[in-house]
Nucleic acid binder design. Sequence first.
DNA 1: AATGAATGAGAATTCATTCAT
DNA 2: AATGAATGAATTCTCATTCAT
Lengths: 192, 192, 192, 192
Amino acid sequence: MAKPKIDRKTLLRNSLSVFKTKGYNGTSMNDLAAANGLLKGSIYHYIESKEALMLEVLNALKDHYVNKVFSKVYDNNLSLLKRVDEITFRAQEIYTHEEGGDFFVNIGLETLNTNPVFAEVIKEFFDEWVKALSHLFELNNHSKEEAKIHAEVAVAEIEGAVMLMRLLKDENYLIRTLNKLKQNFKETVNGY
Amino acid sequence: MAKPKIDRKTLLRNSLSVFKTKGYNGTSMNDLAAANGLLKGSIYHYIESKEALMLEVLNALKDHYVNKVFSKVYDNNLSLLKRVDEITFRAQEIYTHEEGGDFFVNIGLETLNTNPVFAEVIKEFFDEWVKALSHLFELNNHSKEEAKIHAEVAVAEIEGAVMLMRLLKDENYLIRTLNKLKQNFKETVNGY
Amino acid sequence: MAKPKIDRKTLLRNSLSVFKTKGYNGTSMNDLAAANGLLKGSIYHYIESKEALMLEVLNALKDHYVNKVFSKVYDNNLSLLKRVDEITFRAQEIYTHEEGGDFFVNIGLETLNTNPVFAEVIKEFFDEWVKALSHLFELNNHSKEEAKIHAEVAVAEIEGAVMLMRLLKDENYLIRTLNKLKQNFKETVNGY
Amino acid sequence: MAKPKIDRKTLLRNSLSVFKTKGYNGTSMNDLAAANGLLKGSIYHYIESKEALMLEVLNALKDHYVNKVFSKVYDNNLSLLKRVDEITFRAQEIYTHEEGGDFFVNIGLETLNTNPVFAEVIKEFFDEWVKALSHLFELNNHSKEEAKIHAEVAVAEIEGAVMLMRLLKDENYLIRTLNKLKQNFKETVNGY
DNA sequence: AATGAATGAGAATTCATTCAT
DNA sequence: AATGAATGAATTCTCATTCAT
């Protein structure tokens, strides 16, 4: 039955890695095939088109964040501070260690005008992130409205920091921003 | 002989406009020629290559910001608040009205891994911006070190806001961030 | 082991149907496999190559015409007019109801220069048709030579009519031609 | 100004020649470029796509027939027989000498189901031909209705003959048919 | 300076066929 | 027999750059 050379997960991970480094337009089907140990034509057994692959990569990554990272926020077994730690730790880990910075932002900016197909998933990712942070702020005695604004500001700050970290090759941008976010919560909590 | 169809400034402005909409990889030499009322081959009378053109566009834009926008900060004829207003007003105007969001960020993210040539100018742009904001914070009774950090944070916040504004098509991100920055100064100043 | 999913006859009928609609070059092995409820690789258990399949389809179709249609002409239990009716009725039925017009002509024209392999069967089909009509004309008091010419003319007329019927989407071409052929015989017969 | 390697007319003639031999699907852009002394990419300076090229070839050929061949029929300086001779002579010459038989029919049959774009020009060609022959039959004392039917029949006969001539490699099919057409007119005319 | 044709590498994608399971 | 992944050549088309006019 000719078993596949790679399982879907690996395919998506490898493809993500290439897209991260070269961007959407900068990545060729050859690059993607090679990154998966395949020859040019073979990758079409796994995907329908470059666009479809990117879409699947984005969706898988979004799902990963939603289920593995943002979800921590709703785990009532954890203290508020622990939840904040979790979400900021994961963020820092991901952004610092993986090349490519924030994938959603990079791809979003590159393709917004020319491939609007990707916009929806990207929006969903940010919506989930804002929702998660909102939840934390609500737990921290903010009204729903305040919480949402705080969350949006926090996400913008983190994304801005990630970008400048990449562009200026200075990790302090991100570290500082995440610390500030954590501090935010600590102060209130300790205020009791 | 035969005088040029377009002057350098117009060439750069037109090219910037195309690059903004389509990105670096997404823009073809044909697009650029057409945007300048030229036919394919003719644009090579003005530039050496696509890369050289982008580099010049980036430099010109950086110079524009340095000389026309960031410079306001050092104008001692203006009050501190006026200077803050100037720099935030220009930012808002540029980011909100011109399509393409922040050009330096977009191009930087798209080309960082594949065309490192552009990284330097982009870094210079951000350095100048940070320097300008630093100066404002110093005027506002912050130490040199504190001022620099405040400035870096502010720039990151603005850039993050611009990005999310574009991706999520919600101008509030930027408006809120700029207001916050202005508020920062007003409070201190009025505190006297 | 494992009995075939489809019998040969069905395989050929299904394949004919695809070839009729898409032509030889326009039909992919995938199309053929799918039309037979098989997956890509499986069709090679039945056939050696696309070319071999087409050849078999052509041969089967030719045999069908020879044995089921043209053969009526030699059936002495039928009156001359009945035989004419049979052969023209079958022609009209086939050409009018099945999409794709005349398969032998279509494939012949498409592949004559690039795949001369098919030319022989196609020629055999037309020879048999001409032979059948010749026989009818001989029965109708024509010399062998005259009969052959009449038959060739009739076949050319029918084929021309079928083609124009398809290209111009006007069934009258064929109806008219077949009526004329029938009339030919009726007049002579009634002339007695 | 870099003058073109080939003028439009030559381009179309060369391309027609390739399309005639290999059909539409069987002809590659490489074939077309090579036939015009160009390299792969260069042919796109002349045409937009393979489809557009075929369309232009068909239109040019149709115009040629309309203006140079069918038009003889309306030339009142010529006798009726002369006009018949002209139109049959041209037909025979074209069909016999140029490989590929009747281009409109071949391309029409090959692409009818998959590229309906070509159907319109092909229909126009046949309409013009029928119109021309109709005119001759009208001059030969047939009513408008009769003339049209005679013309349609004649075109079908000629096309059928051309096809069988090609498929069976026997020029007699066409010669016979054209002679019959001419005879048609001679008899009536001499009948006076 | 302007043109626009030529170039040739490279893009995404399709396809007939092979082969391990 | 059936599968369906792998292959690699071929297909249409794009593109940055060069160059003769």
